[in-house]
Design a protein around this nucleic acid. Structure first.
Lengths: 347, 347
DNA sequence: CTGAAAGCGCTTACAG
DNA sequence: CTGAAAGCGCTTACAG
């Protein structure tokens, strides 16, 4: 089956009527519609998207940008795949398709995004991993492409985003550790300019001060957000004079590398050192002793992201009247054994 | 900047000349070309893809289909993200963009593929996780869409694919274990109809027979290809009378669950039971004792996939004259401690 | 070397 | 309720 023209000829009616029947327009005889739908199904006709897009000015495609550099990939978690299901459940109701746009590692993310947006392959974008200063946010704002970001940024002061509750996580982790007698609490932070690092460390600092524990900048360990970064963090931690009795991690896979390095040096996690991890990744569930960490539903996050995005698309806004623009996404503490001891208590 | 018309008006030349200049056609005055390129850059003009696609009958987009059901996702590894970089490095040379098409968990993969193909959003497809009988292979063959599959299938007898060397892996694993005195060797296999399961178990059976070790169907443990599946496999293994002394795994994450269950029951891996894992996943590197497993480069696999695909696209065939259609992708054994003992040797 | 025109496949006012 | 026609943005023979 080629195009609508062949289908129309086959049915011996005009292409206009075929189009109206296929698109569920009301002014079509029911009998005609049935014939059209049946024949289209039988011949496997589906409208060419380029033709539709050109005429309608929209592609019915939402893009999810991900970064696929080789290094990123080695340590990538399934964050995006997890979010995808939730997003699709929302988009399906509007007959929108989600495509993932993997930015090559050797291409500037902003250039890549610009190219994709200018080519008009998508109607709207989801971006993530937002930097503190992120030109993509400006780009999308200026181009008036509907978008939503996973992560805040300083680049524009009023754009749609959802961010994980890094403040809350750092705050509760610090409170929990201080309550157990810890005074020397280290924290890991990403070495990149990603915005969450600032938020995380800042909340850690504030909470310490509120609880009357001095903030020591030496205890902020900047490493890559990866398993290797966790290994490195443990390594640096072991070098510190007046070694900390606790450490708070920021990225789920860090725990794996950190555990490995600590075990190598004979440190007993949950006895000699308290560890609180960030997100409860499936692949960190095996850790012994079990990791105290924070949990969230990627699926639900995907739903929320989808709703915010649609609320910002002219064609769908009406369906989401209460579409909040910004959400701080809460995480729930899952207590484990990795921080289950009190400083000064008998071993 | 809107379309080519505005750009042409701005330059005060015809849209035809603008188009030719932008597309690098030879019959354009160099001075004119410079002006056009400079102005396009300055105004941020990029050709609307729908217009191009409609006119040229091709989208310059290659689709990589992945399955994004919630369950799949929980256990998904980074296989695809890893392959993506290699694919892109090949496609970039031809100005082709790679998009990932995540099939929703509640949609039939074949219907999804049919829809995407019929809408003509991509010029060619990469599919994976091929089933023993896979309608997608028929669909793509009949629709004459260039494609390449990761994994063989019985559905068509001559289509482009690359498959991991499951035969070789099973064969070498069995040989290695038999050489160390094992006679009761269990193997895991996926519970689904995915083709690799058949290949893997069949090679295991043949190798056992060649080495004079009886094949016992009870030692083929069918479980989900996931961490949980590994846990389950260990569980079933422990129930077997005349318990096996070795087990061969098929999916990288299985090792994690398997280790956990074995540790719970006090079995010493590498002493009481030999384990050989499948692929060397980053997140399995922490396992203690270290896992004997097989290694491959996802990046190189991506390159090979890209080349085979292009060799099957009329527009690019000429660049890949020796584009082999099928490749069995080798894996290299990485010896670890998990099988480092001989049956009958003093403990 | 450049311009004018056709046409890719569709949807949608507009007439009837 | 249906058909004929315009036009979305582009590329490409075809004239000149």
């Amino acid at each position: 089956m080629k195009g609508i023209r062949q289908l129309a000829e086959h049915l011996d009616i005009s292409i206009g009527t075929v189009s109206r029947a296929l698109n569920g327009k009301p002014d079509v005889n029911e009998e005609t519609r049935r014939r059209v739908l049946a024949t289209a199904e039988q011949l496997g006709y589906v409208a060419n998207q380029s033709g539709r897009s050109l005429r309608q000015g929209e592609t019915k495609v939402i893009g999810l940008m991900i970064e696929s550099g080789q290094e990123t990939v080695e340590n990538a978690d399934n964050f995006f795949l997890g979010v995808t299901s939730g997003l699709q459940s929302v988009f399906a109701r509007h007959k929108l398709d989600l495509l993932m746009l993997p930015c090559p590692g050797d291409e500037d993310p902003c250039e890549y995004l610009k190219r994709m947006v200018a080519r008009r392959v998508v109607d709207a974008m989801i971006i993530s991993n937002t930097l503190r200063i992120d030109r993509r946010v400006d780009l999308l704002s200026r181009a008036k492409i509907p978008f939503v970001a996973v992560g805040r940024s300083l680049s524009a002061d009023n754009f749609p985003w959802i961010d994980l509750d890094f403040e809350g996580v750092a705050e509760r982790a610090v409170e929990r550790l201080v309550a157990r007698g810890h005074r020397r609490i280290a924290i890991t932070a990403p070495s990149s300019d990603v915005n969450l690092g600032y938020v995380f460390v800042e909340s850690y600092r504030r909470t310490l001060e509120r609880l009357g524990v001095p903030f020591d900048p030496l205890l902020v360990i900047r490493v890559k957000s990866s398993e290797q970064g966790g290994y490195q963090a443990a390594h640096e931690l072991l070098q510190l004079e007046d070694r900390p009795t606790a450490v708070i991690l920021i990225y789920e896979l860090m725990a794996i590398g950190l555990y490995r390095r600590l075990m190598e040096s004979g440190i007993r996690i949950g006895r000699d050192l308290a560890v609180i991890g960030f997100r409860d990744a499936p692949r960190a569930r095996f850790l012994q002793p079990s990791l105290s960490c924070f949990r969230m539903s990627l699926y639900d996050l995907g739903i929320a992201l989808g709703q915010i995005l649609l609320a910002n698309m002219p064609a769908h806004r009406a369906s989401y009247p209460d579409g909040g623009r910004n959400i701080i996404w809460p995480l729930e503490l899952v207590p484990g054994e990795s921080d289950a001891f009190e400083i000064g208590a008998p071993a």
